[in-house]
Write a protein that binds this DNA or RNA. Structure first.
Lengths: 150, 150
DNA sequence: CTCGCTAGTTTCGTTTGGGTACTAGCTACA
DNA sequence: TGTAGCTAGTACCCAAACGAAACTAGCGAG
């Protein structure tokens, strides 16, 4: 299993730190996002991302072209959209299909794998919309408290 | 309601783009993460973050001190931990309590608001752990395909 | 007397993100 | 016959963010 090779790198944490041993035998490792060199950490870094969440969620409703996504996801730059889509395609979360139309059109759609993740990320986006008032009032309270710490 | 003021800024998108009007009256706006100037977008940027997901999830099991978190979340720097915790506290997701012990100890715990988000983010982390094999094989297939495009 | 613990802040070099300009080839319109 | 627009990106440059490491302060233990 090729997954094991990712843990070959040095596992030393902070000097003097005792990290929980977690059975370091040659047996198959259980993926753990809290381990520094675990591939899940890299994947988490890709997917726990603003643009990923927004793009993936919209693609669930149906395939979209490059510039359609750009118009829907307000504020995204061409560079970040291109970059994020490429990343998503590499991770097997979206599939890219080019059509030989007059100006070449490219259609992005979500894969079954991407669909399962999109549901989780959508929950986060929805949380933000549902709880924005609580967060904003917490921020206001915090900022007021910091000011009067004179 | 103070939430409205956030939409006062210019709403022009790309030149020539027709963004869906979405009733721009003085009525209360529905928070929408796809709008460029919506505060939910800022919050989403905070919470859709690798460190936020990892820290918040661990705090659900019980309060932790600064250096405890640092040891658990492998690879996080003191700077990012400090920064992320401060952000989480400002957003009302975690609460910070300092104890006048000999070396001052500081305890971080998750608020009810933070707990509700932690559940959503945990689902994303768990997704990464559950689907790491699928993602890695997709990456391998993609990389192989790119190479042979010569 | 020096080392280590606590919780951070500061500094600095590298990496990443974002804005803008630019590409190609075709179409619609004046 | 210009020329302005569409498509999907890429190239470049600067600013912001990230990460590693050094440094803060005060006390306990060896």
């Amino acid at each position: 299993m090729h997954l094991n090779q990712f843990w070959k790198a040095s596992k030393k944490a902070l000097p003097g730190d005792k990290v929980t041993p977690q059975k370091p035998g040659p047996a198959m490792r259980i993926p753990n996002v809290y381990e520094k060199d675990c591939p899940t950490r890299l994947v988490l870094d890709h997917i726990a991302d603003k643009w990923t969440a927004l793009i993936l969620w919209k693609l669930v409703d149906g395939p979209l072209r490059f510039n359609q996504i750009r118009r829907i996801v307000e504020g995204i730059s061409q560079k970040m959209l291109s970059q994020t889509l490429k990343q998503l395609e590499r991770d097997g979360l979206v599939s890219r299909r080019a059509f030989a139309t007059v100006p070449v059109t490219v259609e992005y759609s979500v894969t079954p794998l991407g669909h399962s993740l999109a549901e989780k990320m959508a929950a986060v986006s929805l949380w933000a919309q549902d709880n924005i008032d609580s967060v904003l009032s917490a921020q206001a309270k915090y900022d007021a408290g910091v000011d009067e710490t004179a």
